[in-house]
Design a protein around this nucleic acid. Structure first.
Lengths: 392, 392
DNA sequence: TCCCCAAATGACAACGCTATCAACCTTTGT
DNA sequence: ACAAAGGTTGATAGCGTTGTCATTTGGGGA
């Protein structure tokens, strides 16, 4: 329920002894806009015909259509979205929900993709943080999200990273009949639009890249376990080691939370282990950047003393020194694609679509051969594997 | 004018030979929500009284008010915002416009502040990039912004950084009667809400901080000239030098664009100058991070060989190695404050308010005394100046 | 030429709320 | 006890669209 808002100023503003019954308050859009009625009159048709033209509906004679369009342009007519929503029972708006403020770079890129698709589809986008990110775990209650949906009346929502795995939330949205698209959910529910990256294979490729330089003691900083991507990236890492018959030292696995400080922490701990790992793979770039900072703080050179790889190719990846070798998650494209799918579903009541994107490696300066110790090789064994970049 | 949207699926979906006249299309909010009528009936009052209660209007008997509230809660009633907007001629939504994609960190923090204020004031927020940022100069046409305003019917807009200085845009918005709030405009127009930081004095304090460590050859990387803050920060820097009777070497001033690459470039050029500067002040943190990367690339140690300071205390500032000494621009608080002012103006038709915030220094690891050369001092001359952090 | 069907168009009732203003209660003062 | 002055409440008319369904128009074939 809507808590009472502070009383609008109308009452306060209007002087008690002012005999004029006209309300003095007026901080509104100045020029009153043309309405569908004026266009209809101007074009000599009914408002229904204008409506048809504005919405691209069929069964309007070409000449009529053009006349209406011309008059609408002349009058600078823009349909009132609120009236459309009220009469048409849909708002042509969607909500983009996100949770953790740490990884805002990710949300930013997702936002841009979603926004692009909304523009193209003439939908309005509402960006909405939810769940107390600072509170850490817990996540947003389904109630909070549902409140947002019923308050704003968005036609559908897009859930970023960990939200798409919240069973209670998904169930609540389903019960409410709200179409949903998930970005990077743990698994692709066929009843929902979704888009995922091939985290596992990209992570494996990254691992093979390190192995190809001769690294054998590679540490791994895991991501936030609430994100499906974390497990996939870890699995890809292990796959890579296994395929190269490289035994994993379990001490070289630490947990992180996808943010810079956790990468710093994790790396500090890892670099204290003896024998020291020669490379660190972090489950995302933020943590990799933290790892680089930790290495610097310990007086180690990157990549001479320690190689580091990240994941995502976020802006942070090109802002470290040295810049990060990583795998590019095409977040913009992913977000754009699934948003377009959602809008398509909204329009046509078609079936939801699931997509998967590849993450090509991006080779930069944070990897080198391990320093010759007892068994070190100075040169990489072979060129880096590059997975193709293509939409499936 | 609204270009024709692709035809909704209703026509395509409905089979031609389907005798049922009921439209088969239905991807809408499932459960139909309670309306004001049902609440009115349930509480045994007229809809007008329900409206009064929901809007916190006066002149409703306490008992009636409570009864209405109870029924509304029971029914899970949420006023339909579109109907409210249509009838009340205001949407209770505002738009946050931003231009440059480079500095998204800034926009992010601004967004959070604006969002917080909108939540508190029960306004909906529309985030809207505008102007082709990649196109560099040019900026968004007033037309584009006006199109956004008339299409969405937002009640007011907030303009971030360089937008608040676009005369044509401001004039167009004024003519349209749209209330405006500006974040970090060049000057505070008394007819508009605005919020600025004391860029000049903070920049001066930062400069004095460097001087106190014994630096005399300090270079400056300027920001995007379209931002008012750039000139202020430069002026503060010069003031600081002048006050210390430190003559400025004009070769040590380079232009930047507030982004990482321009900081990198600028620093590379500066570090090639002989005699080399012992410190670099960048007009923001992104560029300072670029400067640090450039220094590293040239094999210089920060801060042993070269000190660096930034501005803003953006997330980037604590992700560099070493972390940046900088001045904290309280973007969240600034954005929140001016948004609250705008909402207040929207509600009460009061006069717009202008605010100024201080930027306290944040001392981290990127500053040290210059390496002893011929006149170097090893120790700072006195403790760093810290400006107070207070809202004016 | 006339009829029939489909295409084209319009009339009008929603949609769910706010604004206006009249009407109805309470007080308060005398 | 009675009026005047407020406080409280409700009836009703929009707000600017879309949805439904009836009506008009335009051809083409018999």
């Amino acid at each position: 329920m809507r808590p009472p808002a502070p009383p609008p100023a109308r009452w306060r503003t209007r002087p008690r002894d002012n005999p004029a019954s006209v309300v003095t308050y007026d901080v509104r859009q100045g020029a009153s806009r043309a309405t569908i009625n004026e266009v209809a009159t101007g074009a000599g048709v009914s408002i229904k015909t204008v409506s048809r033209v504005m919405n691209g509906e069929p069964n309007v004679r070409r000449a009529t259509r053009e006349r209406v369009r011309r008059v609408a342009t002349e009058l600078g007519y823009e349909p009132n979205p609120q009236a459309r929503a009220l009469a048409g029972r849909r708002t042509f708006s969607i909500g983009l929900l996100y949770e953790n403020p740490h990884e805002f770079g990710y949300v930013q890129r997702a936002f841009e993709g979603v926004f692009a698709a909304c523009e193209a589809g003439r939908y309005t986008l509402l960006l909405r943080p939810c769940g107390d990110g600072s509170r850490g775990a817990g996540g947003p209650s389904a109630k909070e999200v549902l409140g947002f949906v019923t308050q704003t009346r968005v036609d559908g929502v897009i859930l970023t990273a960990p939200l798409g795995d919240d069973k209670a939330l998904l169930e609540a949205l389903r019960a409410n009949g709200t179409p949903v698209a998930c970005i990077a959910p743990r698994e692709a529910d066929p009843r929902l639009c979704s888009v995922r990256a091939r985290d596992r294979s990209a992570s494996r490729a990254l691992t093979e890249h390190l192995l190809s330089f001769g690294h054998r003691r590679i540490a791994f900083i895991n991501g936030d376990p609430r994100h499906g991507a974390s497990a996939e990236r870890l699995a890809g890492f292990r796959e890579g080691l296994r395929a190269a018959a490289c035994r994993a030292d379990e001490r070289l696995f630490v947990d992180g939370g996808f943010d810079f400080p956790s990468g710093e922490d994790g790396a500090r701990r890892l670099l204290g282990i003896s024998p020291r790992p020669t490379a660190i793979a972090a489950a995302n770039d933020e943590m990799a950047a933290g790892a680089i900072a930790a290495a610097h703080a310990l007086g180690l050179r990157v990549p001479a003393d320690i190689s580091v790889v990240g994941f995502d190719d976020s802006p942070a990846a090109s802002r470290t020194w040295p810049p990060l070798t990583t795998a590019r998650q095409p977040v913009f494209e992913m977000a754009q694609a699934t948003t377009a799918d959602l809008i398509e579903q909204l329009r046509t009541a078609g079936t939801p679509r699931q997509r998967v994107f590849d993450c090509p490696l991006v080779l930069r300066g944070s990897v080198a051969a391990p320093a010759a110790r007892k068994s070190g090789r100075a040169e990489p064994q072979h060129a880096a594997t590059r997975s193709a970049h293509a939409d499936s």
